[in-house]
Design a protein around this nucleic acid. Structure first.
Lengths: 243, 243
DNA sequence: CGGACGCTTCGATACAGGACGAAAGGTGTC
DNA sequence: GACACCTTTCGTCCTGTATCGAAGCGTCCG
């Protein structure tokens, strides 16, 4: 008798197969910082010819792992969503023991722990701290998923984040995203991406030399401290102070 | 100029390749409830011949995805660790939209949300609640990883858990394990497995008909309530009450 | 001790899919 | 409008590997 298992599990093999190829894996990890890269660039990072890369990207697209936007004669590919990034992160933790070899790599690892992008939002120690500041200031409320207070809406507007526009996207608004170095939540979702983007524009954070590494600038440190400290300040006062 | 990227990321492609084969994926998901299955059983659930299954299992073993223990003429395979289970869980969430079709599947999904095993420890609403009870009773302390108090050591002993023996294992002692239905922590690691095992033996929980589904018995409900309520009771009193 | 059973190794086969060169389809630039 | 550029499609080769039958090596049982 053949036992037909009743299982709600999705077919994971096809998804894994998409990541199983070295070239595709290289492309996906290259996209892990959330930016969109052109097909040619992806061919280069994967170490394959343009035709080969095109075939791979077609499969990734068909499998729902990446999305594409055509712009002139370029076609920019990006990860399809946060779940995809999460899979890549988790996969990196299993398998080969992450023994650090060179001093240089060790430094890289430390920097990644300090601050990095997780798909498209800030993660690492800096990400956890940013969330802590926004909570302390009363901009956000919640435990594992967050909501913006009225005060937070004004405050974030002062930082260049249009909360109303963010709310319109279909993506999860402001879920907590568990940090694998800090073991604590940082701000993810549409709001996390928007805040990260705005603060990058403001020069609080700066992309580092290596992929996904982010530096906290002096301005950023002061900004975070200000949010933390001035819990009772009006958001207007905070903004003017930060000029 | 060829740019050599400095990347601390592990090679995810080989790991993904192990999961990419349908037969291997079937075996791994069959092991997801934490039990160890014999090679023959795994061959059956994967729908392949014993030789083929043996080859697959050898590759999984070499790749560090499963562990094996020989017992008589059987060889029992189990997942190598919680990280492996986590990868499978996350992979199942990406890709095909988990649209529930039949009423039956919907019921399954609901049951899985109620209580299930996550690799080898209790998860779902029941898992979160169990951890809450242990924390409320002062048996455990901690935020994302937990330590057993002196009082907890006595209390857990009364429930059939030998904390000293658990501590000797090389596995992480009592890390929090993030629940993907509840978005909150439940108790994982060696202690999580030991507690789950002990409470199953005591009849607080019972494995359901479908894989990974767990039922909370009446006895279990009362037990949890007792732990919650009797914060100031001595563990001895708790144990006698629970007889 | 012989036989049944469980699992693995070996050898052979067949198929999927990853690689590239050549050429075609669009899009910007001079 | 001719050309350069990015990207894709097509055709073809070739490696990697999933598959099974037969045989070999243990273990349990009568």
């Amino acid at each position: 008798m053949v036992t037909e298992h009743i299982t709600a599990d999705a077919d994971i093999a096809p998804v894994a197969a998409l990541i199983a190829d070295p070239a595709r894996a290289a492309m996906l990890t290259a996209l892990l910082d959330g930016r969109a890269l052109a097909a040619g660039e992806l061919a280069r990072v994967a170490g394959v010819s343009p035709p080969t890369a095109s075939a791979h990207l077609a499969r990734l697209l068909d499998g729902g792992m990446v999305a594409v936007v055509a712009q002139g004669r370029h076609r920019y590919y990006r990860l399809a969503g946060p779940e995809v990034a999460e899979v890549l992160e988790v996969l990196a933790r299993v398998g080969p023991r992450p023994r650090v070899r060179s001093l240089r790599q060790s430094r890289q690892a430390r920097l990644l722990g300090e601050a990095r992008t997780c798909y498209d939002h800030l993660a690492g120690r800096a990400g956890v701290e940013l969330l802590g500041a926004l909570l302390a200031a009363g901009y956000l409320v919640g435990q594992e998923a967050f909501e913006v207070t009225e005060r937070g809406e004004r405050g974030l507007a002062g930082l260049g984040v249009d909360v109303g526009a963010v709310r319109d996207t279909r993506r999860g608004f402001a879920p907590g995203c568990l940090d694998w170095t800090e073991r604590r939540f940082h701000l993810g979702g549409a709001l996390g991406a928007a805040v990260t983007c705005a603060l990058m524009d403001r020069g609080w954070y700066r992309r580092g030399v290596a992929r996904r590494v982010v530096e906290v600038t002096e301005k950023g440190r002061k900004g975070i401290a200000a949010i933390y400290a001035c819990k009772e300040l009006t958001s207007h006062a905070l903004v003017t102070e930060m000029r």
